[in-house]
Write a protein that binds this DNA or RNA. Structure first.
Lengths: 236, 236, 236, 236
DNA sequence: CATGAATGAGCCTTCATTCAT
DNA sequence: AATGAATGAAGGCTCATTCAT
């Protein structure tokens, strides 16, 4: 039974009166504009994703947040799942780009240095982690197979680049990335589950995330262990 | 308002014709029978859970699988969420009981032996891992607070017992369990995601789970690392 | 979505421990006991009716309040509607009996005296009025026609008796009763609708029912008007 | 999660074959069309209301009668209760408008003339009367408080206007309206209850409503009585 | 007789998706 | 290209009624 209802229609304020919304062409005609509009939608979804669940985040919400009509969303994404897959993709690409950049800068040579770099690059990716939890369960159903394949292909390609920047053999580097992934997911979940929203009046706690330290410990332990299995050489 | 009711009992197939359904009293009268029926429902849900998502697994499905009417489910569980919480609870209790039993038998004294025991106890808990992913997101909404509290209390209590059987200090043991949890979740997810359901005709693969080895490696590395941080003594 | 659930089962306290429930035979064997049990149910329904709506008052509630099983109710009443029809009947019989008694005592001879008597007899019949609102809409569906007929017959018979105690001709007396009925219903409804449950902290208001005065005014006006239409004679 | 969708548009019967359905745009785009559609729904509900109870009148029925999908109803009304509140509102506004119009035309100066006008305006409002019985019980639950407030505000406002057209003091006029309300409700109910739907083949009876006369008598008696309590003056 | 577990039609409501405009 | 009204399958849940015990 629904008792309260959110106000039905967001008022579309004309841009002449309200400049907070940056000017946007009424229709996306050029390819660039279309890419832009697609991005608008993704950004809207991203914003909402920070405070919502997959189930609770309806296409209606996204449309409203993007200040577009519901139908317009379906011009750019065939299904809700495809939209979210694109969201995962974007987050993932961004994280991989960041990580690659960091590795290029630091050129870490030791397991510890690699761990430092990966950990630094992997802080603050909570939304990504939460998205990854969706993969393989709710996502990838109701998605055109070609799209799934493309997603995997893209990820694989970038992973190859990433791996090339680690000072281990290719298989070893890949393993390390997998461990990073698993640990990130695992600790993300554990943190979410057991970080009770304690209604204590002290929001600024000294230990912002008691689990970050454990995540780091595990990551270092694993990298050390794997690295010790092969002679660390300087080759990419 | 129902005025006329058609005769409507589903034909209970005689066991002579249909042996798959074990004999079951038409009505659960005694407390034992009721516990049994509750269990029937949980088992039906468990069966479906192996091949379904939380969202896709409707109460209708559960009812059908349990060969009961939808309304009957609500005699035993007030909401869908409570049913699933019970499912989590059961899985979790079972895993903890198994683990405790194993620890009692083996009385592991070294980090390696502890890792062996925990790994042995944690194989084949895929459904549990997937259930745990629900906790804190979809679950614990629409559940009577008292039930959530009870669930947490029970888990905590059992964890205390479990921890007492590990040859480390209590805080250290707890940390190790957390790592076990995180790694299990993380690798479960990774395995699910990247184990493509290859429709090849060879089900009996030589490497049943390529990720199990990695999970094991990580677990051992982490336990060793943590154990090395404290002097391993023989006390519980 | 149901969030809170009332405790499922009322504890059946054994009469050895808890004497508040008067002793009651486990089974109603004699006709008297069966009438008694039927009355128990009606009394339970009556109690609940004071604070509930027809829709909200489920058979479950009645069963619980009567400390009987749901199925038992159906031994005495074939449908929910029949139970309520019996409830209406009881209330109505009681009111008519009271009114007849009062008329016998006072033997009112003037319109004003008649109004006095009827008004006195009709105070505090809120539950009856609320029940009467059900008649003809929700009630009398899903009721065996014979029962409806019997109900009407009984009421008619008692009304004949009542009418005989009024100092007007039979048709006139009947009209007056009808006006009493209509006014009672109408003002009951108006009172319910516009008596806001003011959350003021003063329960003992000086004007307990501002509408009672209006009801009385109307009743007197109508009786006077009708009485003036015929020569008031002393015959019954 | 809906994965496959069968083609599912209900065939819109061409007006050549089926003239009963007036032409209607497939989609209500303009504000006027939307108001129109909202009205369509209300009219469908109104039609069904003549032969149904609140409980029996499901949203499914309304949707079918309005030749719309169930979901469409919820675009115009958030809950079933809000739909019915709108229905009450419409009926009530219409009655008040009619009554005000009549009072303006006739400008009644005597109690009898007032009674004439009010009675003339209040014939044939059976559905309204039945709806009013819902107010305060089933209605106003599950309605956004703002809507309830708005409803009350509108009614109050119109009542003020109405009262201004009666040749009594404001409080007296209000009292008279209340009596009208109570008598209408009461006699409506009595009529419904005791007008057996006699399946005789003569619909056009000489006495169309034996209770209308009694209602009128009561109304006149009450107005006279109240009017006699204050000196009737010519002011509004 | 009494029980209360079981039933299932039916309720209101949601929301991804479609399509007339 | 954009809109958003319309759709309807599906959801969780209730409760009068039945019937095995």
């Amino acid at each position: 039974m629904k008792v309260f209802t959110a106000p039905r229609r967001a008022v579309r304020i004309s841009s002449a009166l309200m400049v907070s919304t940056p000017a946007r062409p009424a229709r996306a005609r050029s390819a660039a504009e279309k890419t832009q509009r697609r991005d608008d939608i993704l950004r809207a979804a991203k914003r909402l994703w920070n405070t919502s669940t997959y189930t609770d985040l309806s296409m209606n919400h996204v449309a409203r947040e993007a200040q577009l009509a519901k139908g317009t969303l379906y011009l750019y994404f065939d299904t809700k799942e495809e939209l979210f897959l694109a969201l995962v993709s974007e987050h993932l690409q961004m994280w991989m780009a960041d990580t690659i950049r960091l590795l290029q800068e630091r050129q870490p040579g030791t397991p510890a240095a690699v761990a430092d770099a990966l950990l630094d690059a992997s802080s603050d990716v909570v939304p990504l982690r939460r998205l990854l939890l969706l993969l393989g369960t709710v996502l990838e159903r109701n998605v055109r197979p070609e799209l799934t394949r493309e997603f995997r292909r893209e990820v694989t390609a970038r992973v190859q680049v990433l791996v090339a920047h680690l000072p281990f053999s290719r298989p070893t580097s890949l393993r390390i990335l997998q461990h990073l992934y698993a640990l990130a997911i695992g600790w993300q979940h554990l943190a979410e589950e057991f970080t009770s929203s304690s209604e204590s009046g002290m929001p600024d706690v000294p230990s912002p995330d008691p689990y970050a330290a454990e995540f780091e410990l595990a990551m270092r332990a694993v990298i050390d262990r794997i690295a010790s299995q092969e002679l660390v050489t300087g080759q990419a």
